[in-house]
Amino acid sequence: MTPPEQPKSSDGRRGFIVKTIALICGGFSLLIPAAIGVVAFLNPLRQKSTGGDFIKLASLEVLPEDGTPRKFPVVADRTDAWNRFPDEPIGAVFLRRTAENKVEALQVVCPHAGCSVVYEASAGEKTGKFFCPCHAASFGLGGERLDKTSPSPRDMDSLDVEVRNNTEVWVKFQNFQSGAAKKIVQT
């Protein structure tokens, strides 16, 4: 069997030059369109996800004094490639009062695989807990994992909160990568 690089005709130096030219030209001619396509293909890597800004979510009075969490939608402008949608729901946050003037915020997105966590006010017990219906992870009110072996690799994701003018609750809304043991901000 003769590999294509060593045919019987065109031997010697001339043959070598001819073959080299053929390989170089053939390679380059195909490389050019492929490279242009791949550059366009990689464009999504340049695009940033929204979030990271403080958003006003609620006023302090609507949060129960006893520390029961409440879920609030996050409404902001959303960009989808060429379209811009003003004021759309882009996520949700649990807010919970921990002291007169202190508020804690938790992402509703489960750190395991991204389902939406719900709050369950359990009868009898004093406080309820957070529960993820997808793979049955439970979290305490502070977002800590309650199961002995939790499907979730980390506690629920807390968000930065600021209480402004003593009444407005502002939250720095961010999404985090699911599945990782550490909190990694999605960019």
């Binding site: 294509p4 005709s9 001819v18 073959k19 030219i21 053929a22 170089i24 030209c25 053939g26």
Partner: peptide
């Protein structure tokens, strides 16, 4: 290969 192919690729 290679004479005609060289012309083709050029």
């Amino acid at each position: 290969w290679p004479d005609q192919i060289m012309r083709n690729t050029v």
